[in-house]
C-alpha cells in the first residue's frame, strides 16, 4: 500500500494531486494515487454481523469489494443515497475498499508545503482521522489519513 507521508520538510518543489469530495459539511481529500476509480456503484449486498461502518459489498468487475459509509466512519449521521452520491474506490491494505461519499469535488494540485497539521477537532469530527489541512481561497480541504480511518479494529 502506498500512503505517501505528507511531510512539511519536503522541499518546496514537490506538488501533490488531491482528489476531493464532500461528506456532510466537510471537504475531504485523498492523494490521487490512492484512488483507483470513482463510480456510482452503490447497490450493495448487506453483510450480516459486519461492523457498523460497512455498508455492504459490491461486485467490481469480478472482485468483491467492501463499501464503507464515510459518514459512519467519521461518526456523522447517515444519509440516504442521493443523485450525487458516489463510490470512491481506494487502495487500502492490499485490497480495494469503496468509500460512499455525498458528492465529488475537484482535483487540486497543491504544494506539499501548503499543508498544515490538523487541529484536534474539525466540525465536531475527531482529528485523528486527518493528516493535515489545506486552505484554499474559500475552502478548507481536510486530508484523510487512510490507515487511521479504515483500520480494522
Amino acid at each position: 500500500m502506498t500512503t505517501a507521508t505528507i511531510d512539511k520538510s519536503t522541499t518546496g518543489s514537490s506538488t501533490l494531486q488531491i482528489a476531493t469530495f464532500h461528506v456532510d459539511n466537510l471537504l475531504l481529500g485523498l492523494q490521487i494515487h490512492q484512488v483507483q476509480e470513482i463510480n456510482r456503484h452503490l447497490e450493495v449486498t448487506a453483510v450480516p454481523h459486519s461492523p457498523r461502518v460497512v455498508r455492504g459489498v459490491i461486485n467490481l468487475r469480478g472482485e468483491v469489494v467492501t463499501v464503507v459509509d464515510m459518514r459512519q466512519v467519521l461518526g456523522l449521521p447517515t444519509a440516504e443515497l442521493t443523485k450525487t452520491s458516489r463510490n470512491v474506490v481506494i487502495h487500502f491494505g492490499g485490497e480495494l475498499v469503496g468509500l460512499m461519499v455525498d458528492q465529488i469535488a475537484d482535483i487540486l494540485t497543491i504544494d506539499a508545503n501548503d499543508i498544515d497539521p490538523p487541529p484536534a477537532n474539525i466540525s465536531g469530527v475527531d482529528g485523528r482521522f486527518f493528516k493535515g489541512v489545506h486552505t484554499t481561497k474559500d475552502e478548507i480541504v481536510v486530508i484523510l489519513d487512510v490507515d487511521e480511518a479504515f483500520s480494522v479494529s
Partner: peptide
Amino acid sequence: KPLGQHVKSCPCLSGA
C-alpha cells in the same frame, strides 16, 4: 471470492 478485511470476521460467512 474472498471477503475484504472489514467483513472477514463475520461468524456466519465463509466468503462471497
